[in-house]
Structures are given as structure tokens and as C-alpha cells.
Design a protein around this nucleic acid. Sequence first.
DNA 1: AGACTTATGTGATAAATGTCACACCCTCAT
DNA 2: ATGAGGGTGTGACATTTATCACATAAGTCT
Lengths: 210, 210
Amino acid sequence: MIEEKQIQELFPNLEQGLYDELMMYGEIKEYRAGSTMLRIGQNIRSTMLVLEGVVKLYQEDDEGNEFFIYNIQPGQACAVSMVCTFQQEKSQVMARALTDVTVLNIPLQYMDKWLSQYKSWHYFVIKTYRSRYDELLKTVNEIAFKNMDERLEFYLKRQVKQFGRQVKLTHQEIASDLNSSREVISRLMKKMEKNGWIIIHRNSFEWIRD
Amino acid sequence: MIEEKQIQELFPNLEQGLYDELMMYGEIKEYRAGSTMLRIGQNIRSTMLVLEGVVKLYQEDDEGNEFFIYNIQPGQACAVSMVCTFQQEKSQVMARALTDVTVLNIPLQYMDKWLSQYKSWHYFVIKTYRSRYDELLKTVNEIAFKNMDERLEFYLKRQVKQFGRQVKLTHQEIASDLNSSREVISRLMKKMEKNGWIIIHRNSFEWIRD
DNA sequence: AGACTTATGTGATAAATGTCACACCCTCAT
DNA sequence: ATGAGGGTGTGACATTTATCACATAAGTCT
């Protein structure tokens, strides 16, 4: 069961009345690990606040490659799903539960109501957009200017930051996230291992430098 | 001289009181074509609404390549410059005036005040973030999945949409915007010309297909 | 016109990345 | 234990893009 206290901890600095409304009108929804939470072209009818688990946001091409954009952690919201009421928009991205995930679903009508009623909600929405926009800019910077070895390093570090030294990912999954091929990633990671940055295990790797 | 009427036309659907305040507290600022309007790392102290001219937003790498993100047109605002008061943030991008540009500068304090006071301002800010975020997603899609020929086509079409069939850009500028090299762009454009899509002039090209 | 500057065209070659083929693991189920 | 199925390692080769070198063309200045 989700307690109001948990929500306060995950989403600090909101007004008391807003916490009450979140509890009252937010709908708890659970997703199993691996399930798709948002599809390209899908209409967006509610805002998701992540309470538990990790959500992966990605773009997909024709061949089913899942280009990684960023992960959404507990205490964060999905910017894509934050839309003004009147213009229900369609998603350009996919979202999938990496682990079992619990979200608090906010029906669009409250989204709108709270915007005019709670200043803190307001800031929360804008802050969410801003930080997601910044993440996206970083990604653009990587793919626009850097070679695969640097992009891989950036990507692995990002995973380590979120999941800890031991990260459970196959070379194939990493390749897909970077829209590269398994062989290329295998070779580059082998080199990183030789340089003493990581240890490669089956289905996972371990970051051992700095 | 900028009239209230012009602002109403450029930024429709705002409240009357807000237009008055925009006129009262917004500061008109002019930039010469080619001048830099926003630098990486620069502190953001105000919000820019573009009244006249075109602003180019780009990222820059070590070698001075200016990777094109998108243009900001009259009637649009710079999402990057829209921040909540408390957390003055630093820019990750560069902005330059492509033509002579006139902007309306909103000091951060009003940004904040209007957010709680005018619902329409509120929507405007969120809509700005949303549409810029979507633009950025499109760019990511291009560079993540597509080869240079497709990216070039997408880029050229985007320019044509904004400036009309006749676009004034050198191959070198295009190459820089796509973080490619002049020779590559020259070859690809030559091919497009052979296919009857464009006509290449010195310092410009003309879109002639569809 | 002639000299200069800048833009464009094109071949040859290099570097980065992707693809194919296949070997050699692990791990798990029967 | 053994065979099947994935995950990983690695050479050979293909493709894409970048770089170098240099030719040509178009506009500018005097």
C-alpha cells in the first residue's frame, strides 16, 4: 500500500493540500518488468509519477532497435505525459518498465486544475520539463559529436550511476540502446576491460575505475 | 516601435492584462545579424520572446562546429531561457541571430509573478517547453537512426519550410550544422540536383521537388 | 581584363563502424 | 551428461563518412 508519507518523501516541496489531492485522485497503477507503458503514436490521457521501479524511455526504428533516451526513476515524472488538457497529444517515444514499476496516474483534468491552484505543482511540471530537456540536450551532444567509444563510456557511466557498480545488461542490449551492433560493443568493452575500467561478466559488467 | 497590437498578433490567446504587463515590463532588445545571443555556460537572467528575425539554436564542439538544433521564429520563445526564479540555470546551448533580431526580454521576476497570476502565460510556457522538446526528439531520431543523405534531406526541407524555396546557405554552413564535412555535403547535394530535387547556386540552393 | 577570394566538384585514400561467419563459452532443462 | 540456446570473442570484409589534394568556377576589386 502506498502511504501519503512515501509520496511526500519522493516528491518533496509540494503543498499539503496537493498531497491530499494526489492521494485522493491519483490512481496507483502497476506494471510488470518488461511491459510496455507507452507506445509511439499513443494518445496521452494522463500524467505518470513514478513511485517505484525504473522506466526506460526510448525511440524505436523500423528494425526494432530501441535507442535509449533516458531512465525515469522514483520521484520523477514522465515529461512526455505532461500535456495541457485541451491538446491531447501523441507520444513520439516508447516507455518500458525495466523493473516492476508502480506509478501514480494523474487524470488530465486534475493536471489542469492543480496548475492554477497549486504553485508548487506548477514548478514541479516546469522543473520536470526543464530537466528532461537538459537530459535530451546531453544525448544530442553525445551522438552529434562523439565516436562510439566515448558514447559507450558515457552510457555505461550513466547506468552505473543509476544502478550501482554492477550493471545487468547484455552486449546486445547495450548495442541496441546506442543503435550500434553487438560486435562493436563487444570489442570496445573488451578494450575497456584491458584498460582496467570494467570487468565483463556474462549478462552484466562491473565498473571498477574511479 | 513595437505596438501592443503586434504582440497580440504574434502571441495570441493571452489575457488582456498580460499584454499590458508585457508592454510595461518587457524590454525590447535588438541584436545585429550574426551576433551571439546566448553562450554555453552563460547564466540565464531573463526570458526571450522573439518579435522579429530568426534565432539559431546550436551546440558547439571543441573545433567550433555549430551543430544545428532548431531555429526560433517570431511568435516563439526560447525554452532554454525559461527558468523558475529560484534556480537560475546555465545554458547548455548557443544562440545566434541569423538575421537582425528583435526580442522582448522578460525579467525573471515577472516570469514568476505571471505564472501564478495568468493562466494563459502558464500554458504558453508549458507549450513552449513541449514543442521544443518535441523538436529535439525529432533531431535525436534523425541522428540516431539515419544516414547522412536522409539527414541532409530532412535538414534542407526544414530550412525550406522556414525560409521558402530559395535558401541562402553555403555547403560549408550546412556541413557544420550537420557536423559533417563540406565535401560530403557537396557530393550529396550534387546527387540531389541530378535527381531533380534541387538546383545549386553559389551561396544558396533552390528546392524544386514536391 | 587580371588578380584575388571564396565556393564548389571530384578522385584517392583513411578511419570508423557495420556485417558476416564461425568458434567457444556458459547455463539450464531433460 | 548432454544437447540446445544464448551470450561473447574475433577475423575478414563491406559500407559509410571523413580527410587530403587539387581543379574549376563564380563573384569582387582595381
